[in-house]
Write a protein that binds this DNA or RNA. Sequence first.
DNA 1: TTCATTTTTTAACAAATGTAAAATGTGAGC
DNA 2: GCTCACATTTTACATTTGTTAAAAAATGAA
Lengths: 187, 187
Amino acid sequence: MQHQLKHIDIFRSLSDEALLAVSNHSQEMSYPKGTILIRADKIEPYFYILKSGIARAYSDGENQQINFWFGESGSVLFSFNSYINDKPGYENIELLEDCVLIRIRLIDLFNLYQANIELANWGRKMAERELIATERRLIDRSFKGAAERYQEFTDQSPALLKRVALKHIASYLGVTQVTLSRIRAGK
Amino acid sequence: MQHQLKHIDIFRSLSDEALLAVSNHSQEMSYPKGTILIRADKIEPYFYILKSGIARAYSDGENQQINFWFGESGSVLFSFNSYINDKPGYENIELLEDCVLIRIRLIDLFNLYQANIELANWGRKMAERELIATERRLIDRSFKGAAERYQEFTDQSPALLKRVALKHIASYLGVTQVTLSRIRAGK
DNA sequence: TTCATTTTTTAACAAATGTAAAATGTGAGC
DNA sequence: GCTCACATTTTACATTTGTTAAAAAATGAA
């Protein structure tokens, strides 16, 4: 199926040939709001790219649920541990709105990585981009107070602020919902 | 120069051919304890692999210095922002002991990535491993208390505990040195 | 609308962590 | 051993954040 991958930002750097290779192994899917797309403790066989809608990744603890990631249009969605270690993961991914996604089987993606050097480097850069963003968040937790982290979130992701429940934003920022309420009240 | 890359863990998966290609562009270097190998705000032209010794990466803030990474034998050292974005970085890397390192110019490494699909996938997996480790640390900051994070550090990195100043371990764990002292005292 | 459910805020108190300064420990070099 | 410089611990107090519970506000379905 030849769907329009080339208009998706993450594929913009790819040649027509590489794009066709991906296209041949991918499908466009629609899921309703509330779908748990990826479940912790299961090996997730697909890699997804979000075309529209928003999603969150969270991990369940004994007393709490930690939301550690948000995805918007253009984000890549996958179970880290399935993708990297072929093992069940620690993250659940929930669609917070009706979503349209491109999906590709991990086994097909890995075959493409082995066969096409352009795609192998595309996958490398994707991991590198995620890595630098994640490390910055980790460092910011030490350097910046919760109020400052909230301010940056509102500056950088105003769309998420409007569309995502504050309880999820609170745990994304590393604080409780009560603390986030206090920050928002300016106290 | 044909030095013994194949005995370094991170290269273990590579074929002799790929190993030779890396070897042809890499050099073994020795630096004394205290060397600032990589400086923030400068583009760092080399990628390093630590053969022996230990190192730390830190970022300078207004009032504090945050240590966010430790490297042991087998670790890869590079300026994230130089490597990924070709821009000056935010991290300094200091050698905490006399170190032996393998270095390769980023430009050579990137050329290898473009020319050799095995190395492109090696670089991809390296970024993926770092990514999953970094994300777990971020999630652990929300799930686990400082005492538990310290306990895990001592369990997983007993060598670092002995060889690294506690003030660096404190900021690695995301607490002040006073808090770490309290945790160690069991109070 | 109205009702039920969920989300968000507020309050009171407890616990954890930070700050600053002093005391103690440690190791290198004389 | 002594001294200096630096690392670590301790103390006292301030601040932030967490916990629990309840109230208020927002949301969505009938």
